[in-house]
Write a protein that binds this DNA or RNA. Structure first.
Lengths: 134, 134
DNA sequence: ATTTGCTACTTGTAAAAAACAAGTAGTTAA
DNA sequence: TTAACTACTTGTTTTTTACAAGTAGCAAAT
């Protein structure tokens, strides 16, 4: 999945050209909600991403300005991945996806506390999570 | 892209297993915002979807309860595609995607009137569009 | 000082999906 | 009765994904 010329300037298409695959959003999810920061942590995700796909998607996410990659000062062999502002700004999109899935998937594993808070106090929820990502 | 067992019950993954590709959301976009209802109309989209991909995605969207397919009574050779309630409920998700892309894509083709309305009166916008889809 | 293991990858290959070009079957219109 | 339209299907090539294995840099343990 390398850089190609865009199919259109439609905003939906813009988002799809970054996130229109099975894996990219799962990495963002782990960064956003599961406090994961290392390659090895993403590799451990429930959905079992392959090593090459993970490496590829991390590069793309960095190229698209959604995550940063820095060296862990305590352990030189480790790299820390973090969401940028642009990445954190995906929170409303992720939240709507979660709400939609929770509504229509009978066997959803969505966190009911999250759903309740999202319905009652969206602004507060966003503030809380944004704060946790600083 | 046929039916396979799910990788997880995570709500993000649930959405991705339906929409995690380059094309499915573009069809939903055309149904939601561009008043398209026929195979031939989708085929004419700016992004140039291939005939086999379109046919496949329409089947999947129907299987997932997001669109209905009915025969046009006036023209027996035509089929009408419409969003279901489940499909219309994707509106907040699509809207957040549009807002995010409009914010971060310098050359976005996002409709500025839509963006303004979405920022000022989300509820009103949703009501307006939902009404137009009945 | 050297093996052992951890971390973050890369490489090779098979399988699956997408892209592209062409063809087909059932209307409808001329 | 032919021509055109509509919604597809089929075949082939190209691209992407999945899976298994290997590698390079660092750190701790023997």
């Amino acid at each position: 999945m390398s850089k190609q010329k865009r199919k259109s300037d439609c905003p939906i298409n813009f988002a799809l050209e970054i996130f229109g695959d099975r894996w990219t959003f799962l990495i963002v999810r782990d960064l956003m909600f599961k406090n994961k920061h290392y390659y090895g942590e993403f590799l451990g995700m429930e959905e079992k991403i392959a090593t090459n796909i993970l490496a590829d998607r991390l590069i793309l996410l960095e190229e698209n300005g959604i995550v940063t990659r820095t060296i862990d000062e305590a352990h030189n062999s480790k790299k820390i991945y973090r969401l940028t502002k642009k990445g954190i700004d995906l929170l409303p999109l992720l939240t709507e996806a979660i709400l939609w899935s929770a509504k229509y998937d009978k066997s959803t594993a969505a966190d009911s506390k999250f759903i309740r808070k999202a319905k009652k106090d969206r602004v507060g929820l966003y503030a809380e999570i944004s704060e946790s990502l600083k």
